[in-house]
Design a protein around this nucleic acid. Structure first.
Lengths: 138, 138
DNA sequence: GTATGGTCTCCACAGGGGTGGAGAGTCACT
DNA sequence: AGTGACTCTCCACCCCTGTGGAGACCATAC
């Protein structure tokens, strides 16, 4: 009969201090559904479980790996359903490698083009009619 | 004595058709000062010179090379002052190569990290206490 | 009782390059 | 005179991940 319905938990400032994230960011994450609070205090303050710290670590890690909050939320949803999110995370990370490869490819081509242009660059060309930059011929 | 003060020019729709850019974009460029109109018609319509087409080509080219509109505007300001913008463009393009190199470097490191994680990925690991994804150990 | 600090909600802004729509005015053709 | 196409201005919204502030409430210490 004791302690029934009693919600204990950190207030947002404590979680901010322990996680190193700004209070604003935690509210933002909560709004997005990334970081559910276990409830509210009588005064209306958000209360977070200890587990939130783990969750924030997870979020931070996946963020540094370049996943969007939406993608991270997808993984967390799997976790919250009681399943291991490993497979989903693997898929996301593979997708992320794909995006990175595409970006690197694109950047490499652009770099090539820029290098080519600068290789033949004339620092003081004659002015040309109908062209703003004779080097670019445009 | 003939044709004094008469402003001739394309209306924005014509320029849009000939340049291939949407009317909205041309207005946006004009607002930014990238694409000055030679004036307004009696009815208040923007009028553009033939030269605007060249200017838009120039803008488009530098955009494909990855310069921001602000950087492009810097080059155009030099041009409008009557100077050749080649040197400024060269500087911008070199800076752009620098940015690209930094990005590629960063992406490469991230890719490395992702590859490393996925290399040892276990598709069906045992659940671990205090960890959302055992593979990431977070 | 009151000062201080934590927290609440709601709204706005940042960056960069536009895009969409409303409502009104203009132009050309019939 | 009317119709339709074109243009004007002004405001809002898109992407994404937050951040800043105003005004009000809550909690704790003195």
């Amino acid at each position: 009969m004791a302690a029934v319905g009693i919600k204990t938990g950190m207030k947002i400032g404590v979680l901010a201090g322990r996680s190193g994230l700004p209070v604003k960011t935690l509210r933002y994450y909560e709004d997005l559904g990334l970081l559910p609070a276990i409830g509210r205090s009588e005064g209306g303050y958000r209360l977070f479980a200890e587990e939130s710290l783990r969750r924030l670590e997870f979020i931070r890690r996946l963020k540094t790996l370049g996943l969007s909050l939406e993608e991270i939320q997808g993984c967390l949803t799997v976790h919250d359903a009681g399943d291991l999110p490993c497979t989903d995370i693997q898929i996301q990370l593979e997708r992320q490698i794909g995006r990175i490869d595409a970006q690197i490819e694109e950047l490499g081509q652009l770099r090539q083009e820029l290098q080519g242009l600068l290789a033949g660059w004339q620092s003081d060309p004659a002015k040309e009619r109908d062209v703003i930059c004779p080097n670019l011929r445009v």
